[in-house]
Nucleic acid binder design. Structure first.
Lengths: 295, 295
DNA sequence: GCTATTCGTTCTGTTTTAAAGAACGATTTA
DNA sequence: TAAATCGTTCTTTAAAACAGAACGAATAGC
């Protein structure tokens, strides 16, 4: 029942070159041995991988399929070998964090901060789209993905979404706005800068508006929090965003917080793959209280 | 020197469960055998994969690393096994085509058309961004990527870009434009709808403009050809695009072709990985004359 | 058209490797 | 303190991978 990886390896080598004898020489085994083991693989799989035409070998359709899998399997294996071969030295601990590119940089930095001071550890921080990051997570190229929305896992992708923190969402705008906006009344005449429709915060905001029968004028939809910060600063529109993003501007009076929206939160999630042996450093990160991540 | 995949498999299984004895029972081997082979793997790699604390096994940092690789290796292997196990039947030929999402649909369809009639073959057609598609190509999840620009390969990613076709690029706009635009003079007063700056056609257009010392007014930059078609139809601006994209509109008089731009071409490339055994159907596609792809 | 060569397969015996079993040591539980 | 659990080590046995020779078919050279 089980796949023999040594047989598959021989098959892969022969399929790469197309010649059995040459491959046998390169691998320092006899061609008879090679021939037999490939035959055993074919018998186990129940299908011919090569089509024998005269004294030539051609890949069958099944062979092409197997070859594609073999390619990823053994390139991974060679990468692993190389990793151990180069460094006889002990491997340093590595934590690889992916973050959705539109996520608050403050939050990202707060999350990894405990690791920054440690010189016994390598930190890898990558940004990207959600799809891309989740793919890397599944391929074990990342240990954790930071996102502003949870992900539902399934049997094929056993993701686990853990809420790390939440913060209130306010109406943020120039301090000189008149009349000063207030929620839910006192919004007429103002236009909004909102998160994009895929954002969970935006969804909560829309629900809130629909509850109060408000149809706010939308000046811009922005995915990136850093971008929203710029727009809030440089326009006269009202941004719907967590105050912490513009902490500096609020402090020096460039912007003003016109009050938090009830029941609307910007949430932060850590998405991991459930596994028996987590990296101890990562585990420590995930079990910390969420409060300290946002200051 | 070479990695023993059976040893790695045992290691993977033990690392997954965390228990040697239980894993031995599950695999129907003795714990002594399991223990020895993992030890052999450690000796070959030159580092301990487990840290033995009392009678417990914990993954070392090197072990975590190896485990990540093992995970991808053996999930791939199991997928391969399952594929052959389910179907005792012969595998049908599969051609998997990726196309940059902004590419002309006409062209995509023209490319795969010879495969559409065949019922001895499965066609898989996926759209996506260039990065994503190239990653899938490298992982052998795609056989070919269609793009409007070539890609330079390197030793790590031995991509091969082959030009399939080229078509002229014209000034396309409403037939009622006055004064009627013409190149290179007679453009003043008109605004342009152009491909995005990453597009090779756009680059050629900019070069042409700089040669004639023109600084055209830009109304919009659009990546997607289908989108550009809509804008050309619904505005009074001049679109820079291949006439074939709006063939229907040109025919029924909704739009007018104000002439091709000299030396500017929209080009189409097929990007593949060089390999010994190409799928015969794909090979046939790639060696066809490019002309027929565009009508 | 004949012969020599190449290349993959099959069959035989030999060597290497994986496996099982018993003894051991260390740690946890009762 | 005894019993049970769990991983390691040592020795023997079973299974596999392997090499070599014989074979057959297809190509290449003359």
């Amino acid at each position: 029942m089980k796949l023999n990886y040594h047989h598959l390896y021989y098959f892969w080598q022969v399929a790469k070159s197309g010649h059995l004898t040459r491959t046998a020489e390169a691998l320092h085994v006899s061609q008879s041995s090679l021939s037999q083991q490939i035959r055993q693989l074919e018998e186990r799989l129940g299908q011919a991988l090569f089509i024998r035409e005269g004294r030539q070998l051609h890949l069958s359709e099944a062979g092409r399929l197997a070859f594609d899998y073999a390619e990823t399997i053994f390139t991974q294996g060679e990468e692993l070998s190389a990793l151990f071969a180069e460094g006889g030295h002990a491997h340093r601990e590595v934590v690889r964090v992916g973050a959705v590119a539109t996520l608050s940089r403050n939050f990202q930095e707060g999350f990894v901060r405990p690791l920054l001071g440690r010189d016994d550890l390598d930190l890898i921080l990558q940004s990207g789209g959600m799809d891309d990051l989740l793919r890397r997570l599944s391929a074990h190229k990342l240990d954790v993905v930071l996102s502003n929305q949870p992900v539902r896992g399934d049997s094929e992708h056993p993701w686990r979404s853990q809420r790390l923190a939440r913060q209130p969402v306010s109406l943020i705008a120039s301090p000189h706005l008149s009349p000063p906006p207030s929620f839910p009344n006192g919004l007429s005449g103002h236009a909004f800068i909102l998160p994009g429709v895929e954002n969970a915060t935006r969804h909560a905001f829309d629900q809130l508006c629909s509850h109060y029968r408000l149809t706010p004028k939308i000046a811009a939809e922005v995915d990136d929090m850093a971008m929203m910060r710029l727009l809030a600063r440089d326009t006269q529109h009202i941004a719907v965003m967590p105050p912490v993003v513009v902490r500096d501007e609020l402090h020096n009076g460039t912007l003003k917080d016109y009050g938090a929206l009830p029941g609307v939160w910007e949430e932060f999630y850590a998405i991991t793959i459930q596994r028996r042996f987590e990296s101890p450093s990562l585990k420590a990160l995930l079990t910390r209280s969420g409060e300290s991540l946002l200051d």
